[in-house]
Design a protein around this nucleic acid. Structure first.
Lengths: 224, 224, 224, 224
DNA sequence: TATGAATGAGTGTTCATTCAT
DNA sequence: CATGAATGAACACTCATTCAT
């Protein structure tokens, strides 16, 4: 297990010039763009606004990115890279399925809280209108989770930890559905409110307990 | 249990004039708008285009709806009404939790297939950028599912069908997360592809089997 | 000879809305556009400038014309219509080839002087860069002159006015070449200067004499 | 007749730095610029595009030429130099007017075919919009043809080859008009199509015959 | 001398909305 | 009630030119 990198992230959506500017400029552009795309959505975001707020000329903007689309994808791509890294780490450092799922639950929340804007953008990307953009990322988005989850469940089945009646693929799908929306529940106002309706305000104050219950739900579903 | 209507749908986002036009015009406007909003997303959709394609003047358009927002909300509202009706029916006609969940799984799929465009719009609405719009619907969107699911689970616990260790709220949340994304998997290209990655092409040919497995996952999670 | 219209000018490049505005607006837009296109050329002309100078919003501009191209073609088309009308009239009212050519010489000059801007635009259109636009007009530009000239020469040959050794097609081509540039010599500075170099300043003061000499050149070329 | 060079080409529109670069670079820049200006016209051509395609930095571009205008003029100037050389050669090697005109007809075609792009640019230059640029060349463009033609015709008149009733200036003007457009008819799509309308597809297959007929037209116009 | 990042006014075009008819 | 002409700020993007390296 030498190469811990599942994902290589070869694709880049920016021009060479972007690599050559000062890190300050780069960060400024990316963070402003992140904020704009996250709060307004792809369509409603203006590249001119981003340029102005980032203190960069639009001319420079277009010397960094060939198009608004490419700027957007650059951000999504970086975000995805982050998530994949976290997932890979979890995959490698988990003793068993339950440990793994537990860590995934927690990191769903922490990732959404630490990278709220990124998460909002990711939600936007799943939208039908942005499917043409998602397609451009498809090779990158080749999901890590399906493989990770179902292989770890299969292993657990072999070890007798998980019932042989459990369908690994379906279980992975269901678990990821649960986690995906859980994650959105910390970044999108819509899902935040929805979670509040399900779990109530008070319950949510003790997030450890919430996650313990979620763990329990999943555990019951696959346990021997 | 006299009033079987959970949802009253009192709110309307259109002007009176819209009620007074011919049904043909009304349908034309709504169906064109549905198609446009679904495929392009809220921001990228032009009210002028909708008017033209619907064979209605923009002037008329603005006598029907105060703004683009209101036209959008009118459509979302109607869609939500449809979903609530289906859910209510399921709630009333189910013999027990398992029957109820089974019906919910099936109707997630059939609803998404029959009302694909509506479903795509709904996904758009969950986006952070549209949260101000979602807020305007909040009283309407006061979720039916949380109440329905958790009450039915509680009942089942009382009847000894469901383990007393199951947390009704969390179970409802998890089940709805699973179903929500399952539903999107029939309307949004993004989630469609994601489901294919989890379950594979072949598996998906026999949808009955897929849903049976999903049912099994949920059943195990809450069964005694 | 009842229908005196050779050319029907069915094609229009403007939207219906343009027909519906006030004639004042129409004239304002067209005359400003004429001036801009003529002096700056198609590419360097800004539709926003035209709108501003014509006292019309750009929005209105685009409700009149689908594109800058269409505005340009609308003007060229009208100009061509004018020229064709003049040529048709000449064709019908000429007693013989010589009379006809004489009238064509004169009207080349008067047309260029009365419609200098139009003529400048027409020159621009012959440019390779604008050939895609010229193609859109091709059915309209189906030249009247070739038919008119060669048929009138053929007739004159039959009547013994013109030598039978004269090739009607080539003669038409040569005569029109002479006239075309003569016409440009009254609208484009370049050709104006060029004519001055050929004919000299003084000679040009008596334009009747110039045209008599030109007539003589052509006459000798085709006379019996 | 010691100095056989009519034209000195002293004017240069490029900076010294351009003379100092490698010939390869020089050719690359000029040939790319030629192609761009020819197909897109002066205004629509981007100096940045030329630089990129020529494999030269924009910085270098501006060390070679003070402006887009100068780059354009450099090319036009070179082209003009070429044409003048050909014309001078014809003037010197012709036995009489008819021989001279014959050679001019042929070289109009061959020049247009061998230097199509240059010819297209030259047509662009005659445009009113580019007249400010043409002015900068005026001393250079001081036409060779007027002098050449009218002097050779005058000589022929003295020798009794050409009718004394022929006005040398006007004849030169007319002949050059014929030739100029004939030349454009091999480089600009517009004039190409126009010639086709005059002379027909079939006729044009035997270009020798076409030029013989043209020669005949001109001959008749000036012959004794 | 050569590079290419940077600028910012300007391009053609769109679109939510208003209002006179 | 319905029409659609009109508005003008805004959009994604281009380009001639400058200048620090």
């Amino acid at each position: 297990m030498t190469d811990r990198r599942i994902h290589k992230n070869k694709i880049k959506f920016h021009k060479d010039a972007f690599d050559k500017t000062s890190e300050e400029r780069r960060n400024s552009v990316l963070s402003i763009a992140l904020g704009e795309f996250a709060s307004k959505g792809y369509s409603a975001t203006s590249i001119n606004d981003i340029a102005r707020d980032a203190g960069v000329s639009i001319g420079a903007m277009y010397s960094y990115f060939a198009s608004k689309e490419d700027l957007f994808l650059t951000i999504v791509n970086e975000g995805h890279f982050l998530m994949v890294e976290i997932l890979s780490a979890i995959g490698e450092n988990s003793s068993d399925v339950f440990d793994c799922v537990k860590k995934m639950i927690t990191s769903s929340r922490t990732f959404a809280l630490e990278h709220t804007l990124l998460n909002q953008i990711y939600l936007d990307l799943t939208t039908q209108a942005l499917s043409p953009l998602a397609v451009r990322l498809s090779s990158e988005l080749e999901q890590v989770t399906p493989v990770l989850l179902s292989s770890i469940i299969d292993k657990a089945k072999a070890e007798g930890l998980v019932s042989e009646h459990v369908d690994a693929k379906m279980a992975s799908f269901c678990i990821d559905n649960i986690l995906m929306i859980y994650q959105f529940s910390f970044s999108s106002d819509y899902y935040k409110e929805r979670m509040r309706m399900y779990l109530g305000d008070e319950e949510l104050t003790d997030i450890e307990k919430v996650e313990a219950k979620m763990m329990q739900f999943i555990k019951r579903a696959i346990l021997l």
